[in-house]
């Protein structure tokens, strides 16, 4: 493996598609596909955090599961550190799991209630044979707990004895146990209270700096994404509609869906809110089993013209590093 420069992509996703078959009736006849992810491209550079945002059903979690290879994609390439992992299996896949880890949304259901915190964090090390010596393994558990801001004594406790924020720290410690390079964070702070969210966001940021981690950060809370991610991709109905560095995307959104999404988030300041024009986007997200023709956003889009219902817009770079999939947006730079 070549020593790559810090800015080189660690992960490159090309033409990723994940279709789930839908069957009906006694014979399980296939009646269609849910096109959860329908042809997306993105890269994550070494050491950066890429935010993947969108509403329920947009395909952000499925994308994360494909990258983790918890799903075998229908089509496309997932190039991790130079190797296409989209169709790996067996031993190679297991080796990959040490390098790519995950932090889940729900700190209640993602920790086994019958295991102590110590056993939960030590299990991946045991499974992968990283630390065969039990005493050393426990030392490492204590170290990981401390790194994640928990008292080493928590190793003997059970998940139900801990608060949501503490459990999420355990989830993070478990992900770190493998010394991974890449972590898929799937809504890691959504289930937490506001005052605890900020603690966990800061912890994730500290860990990224300390261990040179790279994150794919999947979330629907746009405010958290703005502060944690260097770059952000917005998904809608299986497609990436816009991608740019974080401040550009939030200050100068171009795709009509991104604009609608940002406009829908109220800001915690009554003065700002009073002065804001507020017209929520109409309608609801269509079914991914039967997506609209052409641009998938066109039935709800305030900018839609005739051709939007006929041709699917191709992603274009409208300014350096700013990609938009909308044929009505002008090129700015």
């Amino acid at each position: 493996m070549n020593a790559a420069s810090p800015a080189s992509p660690l992960l490159e996703v090309r033409g990723l598609r994940m279709h789930f078959p839908v069957s009906e009736g006694l014979l399980g006849r296939k009646v269609g596909d849910v096109k959860a992810v329908d042809g997306i491209d993105f890269t994550v550079r070494r050491g950066e955090t890429l935010g993947l945002v969108g509403e329920s059903g947009c395909g952000k979690t499925t994308t994360g599961r494909c990258v983790l290879r918890l799903e075998k994609p229908t089509a496309g390439q997932i190039i991790f550190d130079g190797v296409d992992i989209a169709s790996l299996g067996g031993k190679q896949l297991q080796a990959l799991r040490q390098r790519i880890q995950v932090i889940f949304q729900d700190p209640y259901s993602s920790l086994n209630p019958r295991m102590t915190i110590g056993q939960i964090i030590a299990e991946p090390m045991f499974v992968h044979g990283i630390e065969p010596n039990a005493t050393k393994r426990m030392e490492r558990v204590h170290e990981l707990l401390t790194i994640c801001g928990l008292n080493a004594g928590f190793a003997d406790r059970y998940p139900h004895e801990m608060s949501g924020g503490q459990r999420q720290r355990v989830g993070i410690a478990r992900a770190l146990a493998m010394n991974p390079e890449f972590i898929v964070c799937d809504e890691p702070v959504s289930a937490l209270d506001v005052s605890i969210q900020a603690q966990v966001v800061n912890l994730l940021e500290d860990l990224r700096e300390k261990f040179g981690l790279t994150y794919l950060f999947i979330a629907h809370d746009l405010s958290v994404v703005r502060h944690l991610c260097q770059r952000v991709a917005v998904m809608y109905l299986g497609h990436i509609v816009e991608m740019a560095d974080s401040d550009t995307l939030f200050d100068n959104p171009q795709h009509p869906y991104t604009r609608a999404l940002l406009a829908a988030v109220p800001v915690p300041d009554p003065d700002v809110e009073q002065g804001r024009e507020f017209r929520p986007v109409k309608g609801e997200v269509p079914s991914p089993m039967n997506p609209p023709s052409g641009c998938v956003f066109h039935p709800r889009c305030p900018m839609a013209v005739d051709r939007c219902s006929k041709e699917a817009p191709q992603p274009r770079e409208i300014a350096p590093g700013h990609m938009v999939a909308c044929s009505e947006v002008k090129i700015t730079g």
Binding site: V194, Q197, V201, E205, R226, H227, S246, D247
Partner: peptide
């Protein structure tokens, strides 16, 4: 005061660190 400070705001540029309410309820 602490609660308002801890919330990341969509209309503010990226900041290095958030200002959480330390401790647990």
């Amino acid at each position: 005061i602490a609660l308002l400070r801890s919330v990341p705001r969509l209309d503010r540029p990226r900041q290095a660190r958030l200002d959480p309410v330390e401790g647990q309820p």
